[in-house]
Simulated assay, not measured.
Amino acid sequence: MRSRGPRRRFPRSRARPPNDSTIATHLAAMTHLIDESSAQGVSTDLPRQIKAVADRAVAEGLGRSSHAAMIGRFRSPE
């Protein structure tokens, strides 16, 4: 078996908080993406659909969950 070498460990100061990738955390970024895309003349259809699914997930109490919790909502977005 081949060794992969020592594992890299990041100092605690660079550790990401556990809520870094929650749905609620990224809603503001989704809004920003929609606004900037619109300002540049880029279609906002897909970002708006994804944000609508994220908004629905948050309304259902999944705001503190990761994006994986949205998979079921993509199957039934309405």
Rank of each mutant, 00 (worst) to 15 (best):
D45T: 14
S13Y: 10
A52W: 11
S43I: 00
A39G: 02
S37A: 15
L46P: 01
M70H: 04
P77Q: 12
I23E: 02
N19C: 03
A59W: 07
M30Y: 12
R56P: 14
P47T: 07
H67L: 13
R14N: 00
F10E: 07
H67A: 08
P17Y: 05
H32V: 00
S38Y: 05
A57C: 15
R8Q: 09
R56H: 14
D45H: 12
P17D: 11
A29M: 09
S43M: 05
A57Y: 08
R2T: 01
R56C: 11
R4P: 02
A57G: 15
P77W: 04
R4A: 10
D45E: 08
Q49F: 11
E78A: 11
I34N: 13
A15Y: 01
R12K: 13
E36D: 10
R16C: 03
R14P: 00
M30I: 00
D35W: 02
V53A: 11
F74M: 03
G41I: 12
S3N: 11
R2L: 05
R2V: 07
D45C: 03
P6I: 00
A69K: 04
A52S: 13
G72Y: 09
A68M: 13
H26S: 05
A68N: 01
P17W: 02
A59N: 14
L33K: 07
R2I: 09
P11A: 07
T22Y: 04
A24L: 12
R64D: 14
R75E: 13
S65T: 01
R16G: 01
A54E: 07
N19R: 09
R7S: 06
K51V: 11
S13M: 09
R16D: 04
R7T: 14
T25A: 15
A52E: 05
L27F: 04
S3H: 10
E36I: 07
P18W: 01
L33M: 06
P11E: 06
Q40K: 15
A57I: 09
F74K: 10
G72L: 09
T25Y: 10
M30A: 07
P47F: 02
A69R: 15
A59D: 14
R12S: 08
G41R: 11
G61K: 14
P17I: 00
E36S: 15
S13D: 11
S38F: 05
L46T: 11
